[in-house]
Amino acid sequence: MLRYVVLKGVTALVVLLGVSFLTFALTQLLPGDPAAAIAGPKASPETLQQIRKELGLDQPILLQYARYVSRVARGDLGRSYITREPVVSALLDRLPATAFLAVTAWTLGAALGVGLGCLPSLWPQSSRLVFTLSFLGLAMPTFWLGLILLYLFAYRLPVFPLGGFSSSGVVLPACALGLGLAASYARIVMTRLSEVMGEDFIRTAKAKGLPRSRIVVRHALRHALLTVFTLLGLDLAGLLGGVTLTETVFNWPGLGRLAVEAVFNQDLPMLMGTVLFAAVVVVVVNFCVDASYAWVDPRVRADS
């Protein structure tokens, strides 16, 4: 069990190293001279040289990468080109808003999705309906759904604010995000449940005379949720990394909008900071999911 967790931890570290390499490589690809970008057009050659030296741009590339990794590991992601604010503090500023939205949307999506996914096993007549709903939910782009919701429930029927950070303002973006998530969970739970319902242990439960609802909820669902478990973790991590489009549509002051603003301002350290942060969140959450698998699924424990 411990060996399994340690192994997963090492893999996660390797992936993190790869992530840092990729973000570093992306910044290297950028055409133009970062020193010139910082100093402005009127800088003298001596100033440029000075800045290059300060930033270590005159060093060999591998050394630059090593320094980058050690900086990042110490939590230093550089400063914004525009506001000169440290990127990390900007990220931490925006994190609560994104976390609030992400957790709300995720809870809504998981509850609605698992609930809908169970329906076809309880009432077989509903399977077509659930299938169609999940299909539509998967095909509809989240940001368009967001726009439609805004139009209907913030403009036509002014129930919710048109955007911005507030506790009632979270409802519409969370719905837009949550419905898409619910669609994918409903789809998976539905398929897995119909597979599991054919298994021997379900037949045993049926033979024991247990009511159908109890079989589905207590016996089959537990099995089907194992598949969803990984996905739930990954999705939460993805949401925490920033929900770019939805945050843009709803003017939500989170990480995703920070990234979009950084694009418009050509603020490279800020953009790469958000991208790196999002990836780190995914790797860490993924590791936690993998590690807790040993606890959720006894079979994994036995294997290692």
Binding site: V263, Q266, V282
Partner: peptide
């Protein structure tokens, strides 16, 4: 590594360059 990045955010990062 590639899967660790949220798809759209990575796309934004690359496209912005």
């Amino acid at each position: 590594v590639v899967l660790s990045f949220p798809m759209l955010l990575l796309a934004i990062g690359v496209a912005a360059l």
